[in-house]
Structures are given as structure tokens and as C-alpha cells.
Design a protein around this nucleic acid. Structure first.
Lengths: 161, 161
DNA sequence: TTTGAAACAAACGTGGC
DNA sequence: GCCACGTTTGTTTCAAA
């Protein structure tokens, strides 16, 4: 599926990504168009799948989720069914925000979020280590956040117009 | 700062996290309250910092950002200024979505998103490897997504009410 | 803290350029 | 494609309980 976004579409995506409460009216002011085309472009962007969803971004720390851990996992075997079963089980853990099969010296890289180190210890002991396919586990405990964003940089799209 | 959220607040956060376009009216129907209390609870949740922002979640693949890479980085030295300078520089790269200082056998763990492997190669060559504090780099190239979500599981809050 | 109603603003649809 | 207006729907405030 090709992407034929123009300058205005890209700008709309950037602005809504920063603040989805921005109204069509505000957008129309900033982009020198009236509300109707803005409104229709947004609907198009939703319809064509550029916008997946609108969500409230919560403050993890404020809610008590203070510990992020990256986990490099190696499995015992590498047959298709081993890989699939591992993913299936890991998916069910709400602590796991991300799980990717990777190329490199692990089979999977996970990102989990928990209340604290103790909760991580409990998670490994009572959930992760019970997965029968599991081989080795390497933990990277976040001790300081340098950068964290969900915002995708769309600058690269502009250079292709 | 303590967190004194009740059952209704937790439910509101969960629902808005899934879909921030849900109206106060819809919420009031689901939670058996009228619009005003819902409205005021949302404002309180925003004011007290539980809700950081409202954002449009974009579809990375649809936009052409198909490659995720985790990078384990070791620096040449570990003085405070080394660590800080590295973070400062990495922050400026729009490809880098996350950067944490970690405990484990790396100093930092990064998550970057790019168009493809070639773009990753260019990123390393023209940006990452030019950071003078950089020691070793280990890449974990995502080859299959098992799970990816931004949604925090708030179930743990309920068990503490 | 809630309800219900009323004022206001935004979202959405239609017709004309 | 866009603009301008009109209707519907949601947001926000306020009196009253």
C-alpha cells in the first residue's frame, strides 16, 4: 500500500501525535485551511490506517510503576513451535509491554514495567522462569531514564515529497 | 505524593488509555454515574498528573518505519560527564525512542526505529558511532513482533483498595 | 458529591465554488 | 480539491439537593 501524504497530512499527523485534543478549528488556523478539509483529511488518515488509535498517555511513575527492565532471552530450542509457544505465554503477562524476536546474541528482547525491583524478582520467579521453553535470561535494569517518547519523527517523509 | 484513586478512577484511566475519544457521556453510561462527576474526575486525574497527555497513536509500519532495533551500549569511561554527554547526544537523534542507563552488562539500552536495516546501518555510521564517548555496541535487530503495547495494566492498583 | 438543565463549542454533513 | 453555513453532538458550568 503506497503512502501519498502531502505536507499538510504530515503536519496533521505530527500535531495530533503531540496532542490529540487539538480541534479541527485550531488545526485549520495553524495550517491556513478551513475546518472542512482538515476534518476530511483526519478521517482519511484514520481510514487509511495512518492513525491507529487515540489514547490517554498515563504517568507510570505517578501510578507506582517505577521500574523498567529489558530482558534478553535465549530459548532452549529454536524450532518454530518453541518460538511460538514462548511468545504465546509472554503475551499473557501484563507486565510485558514489548516482546520482539531478534537477531543478535539473544532470541528475544522484552521490555517489562513493574512497581519496583522486588516486583521484578517476583515476576521472574513466579512467571517468566516457569516457561518451559526458557533457556537463559539477561536482565538490564533501568537505573536512569535518558529519553522516552512515543512520538515518531516524520521528518524523513518530507524529504521524499 | 500519595495515590488515592478509587475503583471508578482506575476504570476511567483504563478506558481512556484504550480510547481517549470516549466521551464523558459514554463513560457515565458504563460507570453508572452522570456526566458531571465523570467530567470532574477526569479533570482531577489530569491535574494530579495521572494523565500526562492525549495523543494519536500512529501506525509505524504504514508510515514506512519498519525496523526496530535494541542497542546495548558500553561507554569508554564511566565518569559522570561521560554518561551525561552520551545521553545529551543521543537525545537529539529522532530515531531513538528510548534510552535508559541500565545495570547489567551494558551501560545503556536504546530502542530505535527506522525505515529498514539499511537506514540502521546509516544511522550507526553517521550518527551513533561518531559519539566520542562510545565504546562497544551490540545490536538486537527485531525480526518479528511478538507484543507491543503502550497500555499499562492497572490491575495491581485494584488489589490494594 | 451527585443530578439536571442550560450555555457554549466542536464535530460532522450539505451545497455551492 | 476547498469554503461557508447549518444541524447534531459533546463539553463545560452552575443551581440545587
Amino acid at each position: 500500500m503506497k503512502n501519498n501524504l502531502d505536507k499538510v497530512d504530515i503536519r496533521i499527523l505530527e500535531l495530533l501525535q503531540e496532542n490529540s485534543k487539538m480541534t479541527a478549528k485550531e488545526l485549520s488556523g495553524r495550517l491556513n485551511l478551513s475546518q472542512t478539509p482538515i476534518f476530511e483529511r483526519i478521517k482519511k488518515l484514520e481510514r487509511e490506517g495512518y492513525i491507529k488509535n487515540y489514547m490517554a498517555e498515563l504517568n507510570e511513575r505517578r501510578l507506582g510503576l517505577k521500574q523498567i527492565v529489558f530482558i534478553g532471552v535465549t530459548l532452549k530450542g529454536h524450532t518454530r513451535s518453541y518460538l511460538e509457544k514462548f511468545v504465546e505465554k509472554v503475551r499473557e503477562f501484563p507486565e510485558v509491554l514489548e516482546c520482539y524476536q531478534v537477531a543478535g546474541n539473544y532470541d528475544f528482547m522484552l521490555k517489562v514495567i513493574l512497581e519496583d525491583i522486588e516486583a521484578y524478582q517476583v515476576f521472574v520467579e513466579t512467571k517468566l522462569s516457569l516457561i518451559s521453553e526458557l533457556g537463559n535470561v539477561n536482565s538490564y535494569i533501568a537505573i536512569k531514564k535518558g529519553k522516552q517518547t512515543h512520538k515518531l519523527d516524520l521528518g524523513f517523509l518530507r524529504s521524499r515529497l
